[in-house]
Write a protein that binds this DNA or RNA. Sequence first.
DNA 1: GGCGATACTTACAAAAATGGTAGTATGAGC
DNA 2: GCTCATACTACCATTTTTGTAAGTATCGCC
Lengths: 121, 121
Amino acid sequence: MRPKRLNPKSDCAVELTLSVIGGVWKPLILFNLLMGKKRFMELTRLIPSATQRMLTLQLRELEEDGLVTRHVFPVVPPRVEYEVTDLARTLAPVMLSLRDWGERYRLEQQKLPPLEPHCQA
Amino acid sequence: MRPKRLNPKSDCAVELTLSVIGGVWKPLILFNLLMGKKRFMELTRLIPSATQRMLTLQLRELEEDGLVTRHVFPVVPPRVEYEVTDLARTLAPVMLSLRDWGERYRLEQQKLPPLEPHCQA
DNA sequence: GGCGATACTTACAAAAATGGTAGTATGAGC
DNA sequence: GCTCATACTACCATTTTTGTAAGTATCGCC
């Protein structure tokens, strides 16, 4: 079942967006998938802090929300590829704006040096 | 104590931003405060879905993160005013980008008409 | 023919977030 | 002198989220 953390039916568009990309894992997953399609095991290696369980749960939700597609190859051992949709690609500017503000915040509040311009798992 | 949902020390600037504005209440609080300073009771009336407890907790965190200031007037009954900081004002473009994507998503996925351009509690 | 690899699922448990209720201090108004 | 209003805090219960561990099916490889 869907998490209740953010109400996806909220009248507030900001909340709606956060209900889709909010949380710890979804931004990381989306970032990695925006770099190119990935298999499940690749994602677990790229985002080692996420358990398999969390990855599957989050991927299911991203799929439900129309942000990633899941290609199953009927082979053994199983092979599944995840890819971002066109809709998810429109998230790029949102991610950039979130990232830019985060960088600025880091500088202003924590007096820390900037990091690489991309997200790391 | 701070929620553990998003790690504010993440290397990822996107996560850092979400650790600051993520969640159900913070965007709503920030939106309302961006419209002008508010007293505590005003906020409870503007955001009726939030309990007093949640409001205080979230306001404390926003204060810790340097996004709102708290002015206490030593009178009885107590009077406390909350106001956004300059830093929080730099969040406006982020909020806009989140809002715009949310609107687009609503249209594309849910085939619903757009709402007013501002967030509603 | 036992082992590892993949992409999961399920069951149980711990942790985190939220809700609900009650209490506090005090001045102002009736 | 009783009540109301404000801006909280404290406490406990419930819900939600996350983690841990184990299990599944099948093929290829040694």
